Structures are given as C-alpha cells and as structure tokens.
Amino acid sequence: MSRIFPVAAVLFAGSTLIAFTSPGDAAERAILAPAAAMIEPVVGHLETATFAGGCFWGVEGVFSHVKGVISATSGYAGGEAATADYESVSKGTTGHAESVRVVFDPTEVNYADLLRIYFSVVTDPTLLNRQGPDRGTQYRSALFPASPAQEKVARAYIAQLSTAHIYTRPIVTRVESNRRFFAAEAHHQDFMARNPTYPYIVLNDRPKVAALKRLFPARWKA
C-alpha cells in the first residue's frame, strides 16, 4: 500500500503508527552503538554502500545529514530489474527491500562509521521484516556491501554488536552480497526534505534525524 495518501488517510494511519511503535515493539529506538573494531581501508576518494532499514524516506533522510556523505538515493535492492518499481516491491514478493545507496568520501566518514550510525539511528536490527508501522520483507533490515572489504567489515560489526549484547534481542539484520541497486521513482527522492510536515515523516523519520544530531554531533551536517 502506498504511503502517498491524502492527509486524512495518513492521519488515520498515524493512529496505527502509535500502536505499532509502542514500547513493546521497541521500534525506531535510538541506541548509541560502539565504534566498530574493524575498519575498511581507504582505497579511493569516493565509495558506495547500500542500506535497507524500513521506509527509504527516513533512511535517506538520515544519511543525507551525515558529514562526508555526497549523496543518498532511495531505491530497491535484493531483487531483479523487472520488479524494481514501487508498486511491485510493495507486494513483498519481489525479493527487493526499500534501500538507500550512499555515496561517501571515506576520508571524512568511513563505512564502519556509517554502519555505526545505521545500527544506532536508522534501524532496529532486532525486528524481522518490519520497521515502525511497515510490515513485509521489503522493509527488512539489510546491508548490501559493495565490495568484499565492506562485507567483511559488516559481518564483523554485527558479530561485535551481538557479542556486546547491545540489544535485548538477537540481531536479524541480513548481509546480502552481489545485489544490484535500482533507483526509485523521482517522487520518492528527497521526500523528507521536500515534505518535512508530512504526518508519516513527522511520526517516524524526523525523530531519527534528531537522534543523529543528538548522538553524533561531530558527524552532523545541516
């Protein structure tokens, strides 16, 4: 079901959001994760990484405010090109997850730094195939590493967090290698920046950006 509704419909969904994001769900709860013990070596001026952690509006919104991030693009990863569109992905049967491709300068912010932000602010890694009010495999918590080095760092960091018992439940975030990214439709790009008062954004995504600014002030950019 599309999130591009008339305001009245979104407000009705908002009452559902409150129920879904009750304390028992532990959804969208910001936790300051420790710095990664393993860091990917810098091999170039720009790198790319893809993250999935619920609705791509909020994931994009967070990463676009990280210092050193050049661009954040909403899209789909995990499935095939033929089904890389919002209507198909929304059915939850394509293998795709709503994802965000992040282009960053590793001399300013490395992949391990982005992982720390992702696990602290972007996603609740203990929720299986859901985030906040959204349900389905298309909203899974997943990492799509762009290189073997990124995959090694991602798996090591998940193991580090699991050993440290940062969360009260097991981490279910998946690492999915060799998956293509497909950019989403134009109206999904920069959605949060263009619609800051949209009810879904206010309830679910602006708190994530506020948590980024609060927990990572040195990483914040306006």
Rank of each mutant, 00 (worst) to 15 (best):
E87R: 15
E87L: 14
E87W: 15
S88K: 14
S90M: 11
G92T: 08
G92L: 06
T94S: 06
G95S: 12
G95C: 11
G95N: 13
H96V: 12
A97M: 10
V100Y: 08
V100T: 13
V102S: 01
V103F: 00
V103C: 03
D105P: 12
P106Y: 09
T107P: 11
E108M: 11
E108F: 01
D113C: 00
L115W: 01
I117L: 05
I117R: 00
V121W: 13
D124G: 13
P125F: 13
T126I: 07
Q131A: 05
Q131L: 09
G132D: 04
P133A: 10
G136A: 10
G136W: 07
R140I: 12
L143I: 04
F144L: 00
P145R: 07
A146K: 03
S147F: 02
P148W: 05
A149W: 06
A149C: 04
A149H: 08
Q150K: 11
Q150F: 04
V153Q: 00
V153W: 03
A154K: 02
R155M: 04
A156I: 14
Y157R: 06
I158A: 09
A159L: 12
A159Y: 02
Q160M: 02
L161H: 05
S162D: 11
T163Q: 15
A164Q: 15
A164R: 15
H165G: 13
I166E: 08
I166F: 05
Y167S: 09
Y167V: 07
R169S: 14
I171W: 14
V172K: 06
V172R: 10
T173N: 02
V175I: 06
E176D: 12
S177G: 05
N178M: 02
R180K: 09
F181V: 01
F181G: 04
A183S: 15
H188V: 07
Q189W: 14
D190R: 11
F191P: 07
F191C: 08
F191A: 14
M192L: 15
M192W: 10
A193W: 03
R194F: 08
P196N: 07
T197R: 12
Y198K: 07
P199D: 10
Y200H: 10
I201A: 09
V202A: 15
P207F: 03
K208S: 07
K208Y: 02
K208D: 04
V209N: 09
A210P: 08
A211C: 02
A211W: 04
L212W: 01
L212D: 01
K213C: 02
K213Q: 02
R214G: 02
F216K: 03
P217H: 03
